[in-house]
Simulated assay, not measured.
Amino acid sequence: MAAIIFTPLASLGCRQPHLVALPHGRRARPSPRPVSMRWRSPTAMASVTPPPGSNSPPQLYPGVYGPWSVDSADVREVVLYRAGLVTAATTFIAGASTALLPEDNAVKGLIQGLYDPLYVVGAGGLGASLFLIHIYVTPIKRTLQLLWAVGVLGSLGIAVNFAAPVNQGLVEFVLNNRAGIWAVGPLFASLTGLVFKEGLCYGKLEAAALFFVIPSLLLGRLSGVMDEKVQLGLLAAWMALFALFASRKFTQPIKDDIGDKSVFMFNALSEDEQQALLSRLQSQQALQKTEVAD
């Protein structure tokens, strides 16, 4: 019997899961190292094919199901993922900056007139990133996407049923009515989940700080017990941390945002193909142990 072990970090796409062979009646334990493999699926074979016009093969990275490489489609996905984060950060910072500007500032009035378009574009950028994010365990990814969708639907409901009848925009209405945070909050919860993943996977302090700042500000405002100066301080921290987080994404290697590509290729196989591969890996692992013993 073979099993795939997902540690908490591996579940989020931060570390490689481990393949281990399990005798009957034994509990699963992580393998000390990934299994070396010769097998490649057709998808994997395509991923290690040199690009047209290239004389050297791409760099290979070890994976739990075999070596893999970064291709042009991977680069495009990662760039779009990071671009979505930059879009979300830029629009949020632009809109939130009005809280720090004086009332008679012309720029403040201009941005206030663009509150809702900025919100829509920022939510779209976040949604794109959540669609492209690489997380091994699909239910975790789907949960973040569901939170985003609930937040979008809640925003639409507030805009149509409450803001429009009083001639206000969505953002203006929520700013003036704290209860509106209940409707838009799930969207920001999805952002909180994303920065949690980034902070845990890559040790990014700004992402870890955002994980605490975002809910603290929203819950503090929703409850009405947080002083306005404290709210402004947290908002300024959110803006600075979000800007740092989004900009630093482009300092990471592309492969970091991909994770172990062999896991995603394995998940794309049919059940029969997966079972055949697991059996082959188990046999190879047993052979390796025999060779070491000899």
Rank of each mutant, 00 (worst) to 15 (best):
E198K: 14
Q275R: 13
L278K: 05
A286I: 04
L191H: 07
V184H: 01
K255Q: 14
A276V: 06
F211D: 02
L218K: 02
Q252F: 13
F264C: 00
Q285M: 15
D256F: 07
V195S: 08
M265W: 09
G224K: 06
P186M: 13
V184N: 10
F266W: 11
L244W: 13
L222V: 00
G199T: 09
F188E: 03
N267S: 02
N267V: 06
V195T: 14
K197L: 05
S216T: 15
Q288R: 07
A240V: 15
L244E: 04
A240K: 02
S247F: 15
E198C: 10
L217D: 05
Q285A: 10
L222H: 08
D260Q: 06
S190V: 09
D256W: 07
A276W: 09
L278T: 01
S216K: 08
G233W: 00
A243T: 15
D272W: 13
K261C: 03
G185A: 05
L200H: 01
V184K: 07
F242K: 01
I258C: 04
A207K: 15
G233Y: 05
L218I: 15
C201E: 06
L200A: 15
L219E: 01
N267Y: 13
F196N: 04
L187M: 14
K204S: 13
A246G: 04
A208W: 11
G203S: 12
E206I: 01
G220L: 07
F211T: 12
R221N: 06
S270N: 06
F196M: 04
G220M: 04
K261R: 06
N267F: 05
F196K: 09
M226K: 00
R280E: 12
N267W: 13
S216P: 00
A207W: 09
L205G: 10
Y202H: 12
G220S: 08
G199R: 06
E228K: 11
L194M: 14
Q285K: 12
R248M: 01
A243P: 09
M226F: 00
L234A: 07
E271V: 14
L235G: 13
S190Y: 07
F212E: 00
G259H: 06
L234T: 05
A276S: 15
K204V: 09
K261Y: 07
F211H: 02
C201H: 03
A276H: 08
T192L: 08
C201R: 02
A236Q: 06
Q285P: 03
S279R: 14
L219I: 03
